[in-house]
Computed example of a mutant assay.
Amino acid sequence: MNDFFLIKYGPEILERTGEHLFLVVIAIAVAVAIGIPLGVVITRNPNLRQPVLGFANVMQTIPSLAMFGLLIPIPLIGGIGAIPAIVALTLYSLLPIIRNTYTGITGVNPSVREAGKGMGMTDMELLFQVEIPLAMGVILAGVRVAAVIAIGIATIAAAIGAGGLGVFIFRGISSVNNQLILAGAVPSAIIALITDFGIGSLERYLIKGKVATSKH
């Protein structure tokens, strides 16, 4: 039992989990702050849809290790440590957030928009009082996908000195130690499952609330 990895590396697992969560939470917060407005913008400017989604798609096709490496020489956002890791995670998180924001808003029933316009609502009032509330379940689904992706990719951040649970995985690979690999992989998987369940529950709650409201 003393050799069980959760006990053996317990204190360091907690420390690395904190680093991991810091990277992911900051990256997702930045991605939401950028992605949702961009998703709204392309619903109002269809000509921007292809360039914006194309850029986000390209970011996701770059291998994660290559992305971290490419950021190292870039001034201000590059180098070694947490900042380039957060930038990379943010770039990887943009696509599902932008795409789902666009899909959610454009999926709002046109008759609901027309009813709002008939009541004299401005475009901004329609957006914030009608479209975003109705699309929130779809938007949250995008945030959930982005968060789970970021939790997994954040393990690579250890390669550029950003810490996190990937430190165990890289140490385990270099020393051929399965316990070290599990010490990084298992907590990361648990965090991803908890995040997926938590945001998914909120998403289902909002969808049920929307259905209940529409019945009245």
Rank of each mutant, 00 (worst) to 15 (best):
A33K: 00
R44D: 06
L38A: 14
A185Y: 12
I74Q: 06
T43K: 12
I194H: 02
L202D: 03
G137L: 08
I97Q: 02
P110G: 09
P73D: 07
V52C: 08
A189S: 06
V176H: 11
I160K: 04
N100K: 07
V138R: 11
D196Y: 12
R113K: 13
A158L: 04
F68M: 14
P46Q: 05
F168T: 07
R16H: 13
I132N: 01
P37C: 11
V143K: 10
G120S: 08
G81N: 06
V24S: 00
V148I: 14
R16A: 12
F168D: 03
L127T: 09
I194Q: 04
V58I: 15
D3Y: 10
G142A: 03
L53M: 15
R49Y: 09
L23V: 08
L14Y: 14
P96Y: 01
K208Q: 13
P133W: 02
T17F: 09
I169A: 07
T61M: 06
L91S: 03
L48N: 03
T103N: 15
G152N: 01
R204P: 01
V138C: 04
G172V: 07
V40F: 10
L65D: 01
R44L: 11
F22T: 11
L126K: 04
I80F: 14
A56G: 07
S111M: 13
K215R: 10
E12Q: 15
L91P: 05
I98A: 05
G142D: 00
G161D: 02
V211G: 00
H216S: 13
K210W: 08
M121Y: 09
V167S: 15
R16L: 11
P110H: 09
G54M: 06
A192L: 05
I173W: 00
L53Q: 14
A29Q: 08
M124N: 11
A150T: 00
M1T: 12
L53E: 13
R99P: 03
G163D: 02
I173V: 15
L193T: 14
L38N: 03
L71G: 01
G54L: 09
L21S: 00
G198I: 15
G120T: 04
G118Y: 05
L89Y: 09
I26F: 07
V24F: 00
L65F: 11
N178M: 14
L180N: 08
N45I: 14
E114C: 07
S175V: 12
A154S: 15
F55E: 11
